[in-house]
Structures are given as structure tokens and as C-alpha cells.
């Protein structure tokens, strides 16, 4: 193989900008989920074949390939399966440090991702031990709700 050598000069660059906004059409299933959040309800749906309960809901079961049209409301409480402490965020995101966790709501088979509060960040080495796997957490609703995942303000330790 040949490999042309790279000249040892500074790269010549020019700045450009790409800033695109999108409107994502949620469709019937997620629109209903978002309407539920506006009413301070967590709506899920169930696969008629494997009986698994999905939250956020999904129009089809990805395992059984059948429509999932049976709806149910889940409690805003569950177990924290795993979380990460974010020390370095990104443009447009929340200000770190913050915690994002995967929560198994009671009655759900999938995990709901959300912000988890109530941890003391003063000693980074001990943060993980403050909420061991399986810790109970509950949803705290935002006062102003607009049909958005952040209508649940966050989850906090429960009991």
C-alpha cells in the first residue's frame, strides 16, 4: 500500500454553521402518552401476545410484531435499576452534575429513563452507593405541564 505523507503545515479551515430545527410528529401512541403526562398520569400499553408492558408506550411489540392497543396507567413509583452521574454535560442540556437513571416503574417491563434527585455530590466516590440498585424512587410532577417528558420534573428517593 502507498501512504502519501502529510505536509507539515497548519490546516487551512473556514468556519461554517449548520443549525437546523425540526418538528417531530409524535403520532397517535406517543401523543396519547404526552397527553397523559399533561394530566399527571403515566400511561403504558401492553402486548397482547407476550403481555409485556411498555413505558413509554409503543405502537407495535418489537418482539412479537403485533399492534399493542391495550392501555393502562402505571403508578409513579418504581425501582432504580442503574444510573450515571453526569459530570460533563452538553450544549443545551442541563447543568451538571446531575443524575440520569433507568427506572422500572411498578408493573412495567421496560425501563423509563429520567432525572433522579436527592444525591449528595460532595464526594464523587460515594455517590453511587447512596442509591444502590433496586432503590425505590417516585415521580415528582412539574406544576406547569405541556405534554413533554419533563412534565415529570424528576424522580426522588421514596422511603
Amino acid at each position: 500500500m502507498t501512504t502519501p505523507t502529510t505536509p507539515a503545515t497548519a490546516p487551512v479551515t473556514q468556519a461554517v454553521r449548520w443549525d437546523l430545527g425540526y418538528d417531530i410528529h409524535l403520532g397517535a401512541t406517543w401523543s396519547r402518552f404526552m397527553q397523559g403526562l399533561r394530566e399527571a398520569k403515566i400511561l403504558a400499553n401492553r402486548c397482547p401476545d407476550c403481555r409485556r408492558v411498555f413505558v413509554p408506550p409503543q405502537a407495535y411489540c418489537e418482539s412479537c410484531y403485533v399492534p399493542t392497543d391495550e392501555w393502562l396507567e402505571l403508578p409513579g413509583e418504581g425501582s432504580l435499576e442503574v444510573f450515571t452521574v453526569v459530570w460533563h454535560g452538553f450544549t443545551g442540556g442541563p447543568t451538571p452534575p446531575y443524575v440520569v437513571g433507568a427506572i422500572r416503574l411498578d408493573g412495567a417491563d421496560t425501563l423509563l429513563m429520567h432525572v433522579v434527585t436527592g444525591l449528595d455530590f460532595s464526594d464523587p466516590a460515594t455517590v453511587r452507593d447512596q442509591l444502590p440498585q433496586g432503590s425505590r424512587v417516585r415521580a415528582v410532577w412539574s406544576a406547569e405541564r405541556a405534554g413533554h417528558i419533563l412534565d415529570i420534573s424528576h424522580f426522588e428517593p421514596a422511603g
Binding site: 425540526y22 417531530i24 409524535l26 406517543w30 413509554p56 453526569v86 454535560g89 452538553f90 442540556g93 442541563p94 451538571p96 446531575y98 440520569v100 429513563m113 429520567h114 432525572v115 413533554h148 417528558i149 419533563l150
Partner: peptide, 11 residues
């Protein structure tokens, strides 16, 4: 996922 996971500060 833009709608339900990225708004939580997950990249």
C-alpha cells in the same frame, strides 16, 4: 432518542 431520553440530559 430526541423526544423522551435526550431532554433528560443524555448524550
Amino acid at each position: 432518542p430526541m423526544i423522551v431520553e435526550q431532554p433528560l440530559g443524555m448524550g
